[in-house]
Amino acid sequence: MEIPYTTEVRKDTGLYNAKVGIWLFLASEVMLFGALFSSYILLRVGAVEWPYGWLNIPLGTANTLVLITSSITTVMAWASLKMGNFGRFKMYHAITLCCALTFLGIKSYEYHDKFIHYQVDLKDGRIVDGHMEENNKDEIVILGRYAKNMHDVLDLHERKDLAKPAPIKIERSDIAYMENYGPWHNTYTAIYFTLTGLHALHVIGGAIVIFYLWAFGGKMWKSDPERFTNRVEISGLFWHFVDLVWIFLFPVLYLL
């Protein structure tokens, strides 16, 4: 006796097995990111002052558009298979994969930008905040500005009153404490890196699956087209979910 409904749908449920599977899996994914979002809210509510305007909105918007495009091409790729056109499928999913790479590229640029961004507390109580230009033995150069207080460091949203970034040379001996904007910097960077990092992992995972189907799917397409189309649909559903998560991440982390 063989496992039924691997490709054909079961009458009373109207689904084939893998479809049920992926929806259940996505349900658990919702709980996973749901938990992280609730943690975000709790941390933000508990914070004295929550950073504002730290992320590059144009880049975020760009990434959002990139992912939306990829979702569209994913649908098109599946539709082309439904219409029996393997070539168009190749074409569309090629675009999907490019989008995935672009997204990851932009994201890693944003990460790098945070890792070279330093907050330097001087012994005289002043704060220097900006990007590390030079990092020498006994002096460093920060392309940034002096901040009167933490508010000037945390809230950068449409702050016309803040000075334009300029190179600032600092003796190491004057530095009380200095730290870059890694996850450890504060709870905002912590949740930012955790959420986007986890999301990036999902992007990579999804991309690998799609690439596999894209590159090596030909054989199965010939032997069992229906099954292959289903697999593409499943991977597509996952991809849409990853996209959807970002649709939440973007406003939460960049805009609000």
């Binding site: 259940l24 658990s28 709980m31 749901g34």
Partner: peptide
């Protein structure tokens, strides 16, 4: 298991 474990996974990651 499906719905209760992921939050612990999130907590574990944190």
């Amino acid at each position: 298991l499906l719905l209760a474990f992921p939050p612990l996974e999130a907590a574990g990651v944190m």
